[in-house]
Nucleic acid binder design. Structure first.
Length: 643
RNA sequence: GCCGCAGUAGCUCAGUGGUAGAGCGCACCCUUGGUAAGGGUGAGGUCGGGAGUUCAAUCCUCCCCUGCGGCACCA
């Protein structure tokens, strides 16, 4: 073998025999580095210490100080160690795949018996045992037939299938953790003892389809989380607890916003305070849309089958629709979308190119028979209110209209404090209507709009709606979670299906292009997101209960009402609390209820015509005059678009 | 829809093959108290629904419904 040049991170270049491994290079540098090494970066690729380097390369040796490779390797090795532990305890369990995911890993198993929480404890103990054995991790490349024969002999059908999926030009790589072996592309650590034994935890077991396909067998997936240190693990578990405290289902109850019932799974019963918030959002959106040139309409909730056949929903969406049959045997459906209704409104009278773009908006309540397992609080429901609109325009206007919507969405999210927004572009799905040419045009126009707005986006092939491609707006909340909200879809199909046209300048009849868009997406979901993002502490203008005026002594009752009335006159949502309770009690109760401002009134305030202000989350109180607080809160209560 | 777990008072939960308990909340009484739960008394439950086993089921078995965690699907 010849010589190769290895370039080190400090710029030094050194010649080695071709085929040298990073482990050998590390050993040549120092004994301690050889021990501490976990992997290497070779020309940017994450490289196992055992893999030979055969050409000139830039090489960096990684240790546990390098977060990214360290976490990747810890989690990946733990996946193997867990699978090994499971097979040591239950030798007949079949193994499948076990990738690294955010904060940890999972591994899917095929086993008759379900894993129990007690099993997880047993597995975890076995894993620690394996780590303490400090088993060497070794790798070799196998012949394809040998790998298949091996897995067939060992009763591992899933592995046989995985071997078959590896492209012909790629090696079949095996990894050994001691005596236990798994098909794996690597890289891995030097030995199991490099995994921190006190910084991982098995979290839960759940069902998962083999290869993510609902037609294939259901496996059992065990999830684990892992970090470099015990402290990081603890921090992560604390983070999960914090996230749980933000759960909108729990806060919704504590704040008295809404509830659900068994008789209406996935449908919200809005309580007065929740409905107040709902209406505040609609009021805001109504103003924004009106300013952007939209007109608002309302279309029927139940329409006959013939309409849904015409729109294509009967063919493509019926499984998700609530159907209604009348005594005289007529088929109706509750609308799952507003677009067909808007088509009929557009279709009234003759439209001219002068009428375009026509922007028809509706706060329409749609019903979708979502799979039972998908339901989740406000975030996934079966009946929800969209801030929906359809924009009819000429092909020439298309890109500009997309851009305007993009601007509007981002401006609106910003008003709620969401500045970090990602965009997903979903292209034509298998189940679809319309010609390939119209799909080409539709997808192109979305791309063009995004490109000219200079906004990054990710493409999701085959994820579009059945009538057109779509953009989806995903916003990141205060603790880094992503939520899908708004959507923008281009549709060349519905106007043709409904035969709706406009008269061009030249007097011809042409089909308009149609844009479907929702900015909040669903009011229900958006409210759920707001609650979680703000942990219930909504901005003052959104808070359904803005001010509670609480008496400290009953002699203050009259003045309490005077304060409440003064606030209400300025449109502030204020209520009195003159119950026979101590101020401590009232403060606690309204704090739990997430009321942003509590005004306490005792003898002193009555005499001085002041109020003592306590803001949610602040221990400090402040006494100001009645006039002052009314003026201040009136400013705070102003929605951002009117400020 | 699929896998697993769960469903007992308004909420959070304990409990038992012989028809149930706590704390909070609620009602009433005492207390007028200065910023996250003052004290007392009391009311309140078809133990998710249906069938079965049993002398007897809230408890055991089966079916269904709903919820929770994932998967699949989606705003």
């Amino acid at each position: 073998m010849g010589q190769i040049d290895i370039t080190f991170p400090d710029g030094n270049v050194k010649a080695f025999e071709a085929g040298i491994t990073p482990a050998e290079i590390a050993a040549g540098i120092s004994n301690s580095l050889a021990k501490k090494a976990i992997s290497a970066n070779v020309n940017g690729a994450h490289w196992d210490l055992q893999w030979p380097i055969t050409e000139n390369a830039a090489v960096a040796i990684n240790t546990m100080k390098d977060d990214e490779p360290a976490l990747e390797l810890i989690r990946h090795d733990l996946a193997h160690i867990m699978a090994r532990a499971v097979q040591e305890i239950w030798p007949d369990v079949k193994v499948t795949i076990g990738p690294v995911i955010d904060n940890g890993w999972y591994y899917d198993f095929d086993r008759e018996e379900p894993f129990t929480p007690e099993d997880l404890g047993q597995i975890e103990a076995k894993m620690k045992e394996i780590i303490n054995r400090r088993d060497p991790v070794t790798t070799e490349i196998w012949d394809r037939d040998r790998a298949v024969a091996y897995y067939e002999a060992n009763g591992e059908p899933y592995k046989v299938e995985l071997v078959g999926m590896i492209p012909e030009d790629q090696p079949i790589r095996m990894y050994w953790h001691g005596h236990w072996q798994d098909l794996c592309r690597g890289p891995h650590l030097q030995h199991t003892g490099q995994v921190p034994a006190d910084a991982f935890k098995l979290m839960k077991v759940a069902g998962a389809y083999w290869r993510g396909d609902s037609d294939r067998p259901m496996l059992q997936r065990i999830y684990g989380v892992a970090f470099k240190t015990r402290q990081e693990l603890k921090d992560y578990l604390t983070f999960l607890e914090e996230a749980e405290k933000r759960d909108h289902r729990r806060l919704g109850r504590e704040m008295g916003l809404f509830h659900f019932e068994e008789v209406a799974p996935g449908s919200v019963f809005w309580h007065p305070h929740g409905w107040q918030l709902f209406q505040t959002l609609i009021g805001y959106m109504r103003r924004r849309q009106e300013a952007a040139g939209y007109v608002e309409v309302n279309s029927p909730d139940i329409m006959e089958r013939a309409l849904w056949e015409k729109s294509g929903h009967w063919e493509n969406y019926r499984a998700n629709m609530f159907l209604a049959q009348t005594q005289d045997d007529r088929d109706y459906a509750l609308k799952p979308m507003n677009c067909p209704g808007h088509m009929l409104i557009y279709g009234q009278g003759v439209k001219s190119y002068r009428d375009l773009p026509l922007k028809i908006a509706e706060f329409g309540k749609v019903h979708r028979y979502e799979p039972s397992g998908a339901l989740h609080g406000l975030l996934r429901v079966r009946s929800f209110t969209q801030d929906d609109a359809h924009i009819y325009c000429t092909p020439d206007q298309l890109t500009e209209e997309c851009l305007k919507i993009n601007d509007l969405i981002l401006s609106i999210y910003s008003d709620f404090g969401f500045e970090d927004v990602r965009i997903k572009l979903s292209t034509r799905p298998e189940n679809r209507i319309g010609s390939d040419e119209s799909w080409d045009r539709a997808e192109d126009s979305l791309r063009t709009a995004l490109d000219s707005a200079g906004h990054d986006y990710t493409i999701f092939e085959g994820e579009g709606a059945f009538y057109g491609p779509k953009l989806e707006y995903v916003l990141r909340d205060a603790i880094g979670r992503d939520w899908q909200c708004g959507t923008l879809q281009v549709d060349f199909n519905l106007p043709e299906r409904f035969g709706t046209t406009y008269v061009t300048q030249a007097g011809a009849r042409e089909y308009p292009v149609m844009l479907h868009r929702a900015l909040f997406g669903s009011l229900e979901r958006f409210i759920g997101i707001l609650i979680e993002n703000f942990a219930g502490k909504l901005p003052f203008w959104l808070a359904p209960r803005q001010v509670v005026v609480a008496s400290i002594v009953s002699d203050a009752d009259d003045y309490v009402y005077e304060v409440v009335n003064a606030l209400r006159e300025r449109g502030i949502r204020a209520e009195a609390d003159i119950r026979n309770e101590k101020i401590n009690y009232k403060v606690r109760e309204h704090s739990v209820g997430k009321v942003p401002v509590i005004l306490a009134i005792g003898q002193r305030e009555v005499e001085e015509r002041t109020v003592t202000v306590r803001r949610l989350g602040e221990k400090q109180t402040k006494t100001v005059t009645l006039d002052e607080i009314v003026a201040d809160l009136a400013v705070e209560a102003t929605p951002p678009d009117l400020a």
